[in-house]
């Protein structure tokens, strides 16, 4: 990873933290903050938000200083990610939204089929037939394991309510 790239990421990361911190302070000030001896509900969020904004400034200002030592960490999760794949992300989000929609208008079986089918299509190596087969298999598991054995309170088929 190049130095310039890293600088940018830390810069945006710090800015994001400042934003979140300030938002928390702004929201917290709407509640009663009180005094140190008698704190209101707003005190703690305001204090934490201010700290977060401060740390955000530190992150952004030290962005350049982080040298190569971290980039060399061995492969693992959580660090050094490339930008997520657009198609995959969109499909995972759409699949989850479809589960929410079909959970109300449709029931467990349509919802299960939708979330598995749509998110499977997010992987470029899956074709429609494979995605459908996987989704059908998951529907069977949903019906047998979750609906019958674990008694999940989501009807197999429903319409609204």
């Amino acid at each position: 990873m190049s130095q310039a790239h890293r600088f940018k990421k830390d810069y945006y990361g710090g800015a994001l933290m400042v934003l979140v911190g300030l938002a928390a302070v702004a929201a917290g000030l709407q509640y009663h903050t009180g005094t140190l001896s008698r704190m209101g509900p707003g005190f703690f969020p305001v204090a934490v938000g201010a700290l977060l904004a401060f740390v955000g400034v530190l992150i952004a200002s030290s962005a350049r200083g982080q040298s190569a030592s971290q980039a060399e960490q061995p492969a693992g999760h959580g660090h050094g990610h490339a930008a997520p794949d657009l198609r995959g992300t969109v499909c995972i989000v759409l699949g989850t939204l479809a589960f929410l929609l079909f959970g109300v208008y449709g029931g467990m079986i349509p919802a299960t089929f939708a979330i598995v089918f749509i998110s499977a299509l997010g992987d470029r190596n899956n074709n429609i037939k494979q995605a459908a087969a996987l989704a059908v298999a998951m529907c069977v598991i949903a019906a047998v394991v979750f609906s019958w054995l674990l008694q999940i309170q989501l009807p197999l088929f429903t319409w609204g309510g």
Partner: peptide, 23 residues
């Protein structure tokens, strides 16, 4: 992985639903 993660998405959705029986 292309079979693993769609299945896991379903387990996550159902698992979270079952915590409070609400979507």
């Amino acid at each position: 992985y292309r079979y693993l993660f769609p299945s896991a998405m379903f387990f996550i959705a159902v698992g979270v639903f079952s915590t409070q029986s609400s979507l």
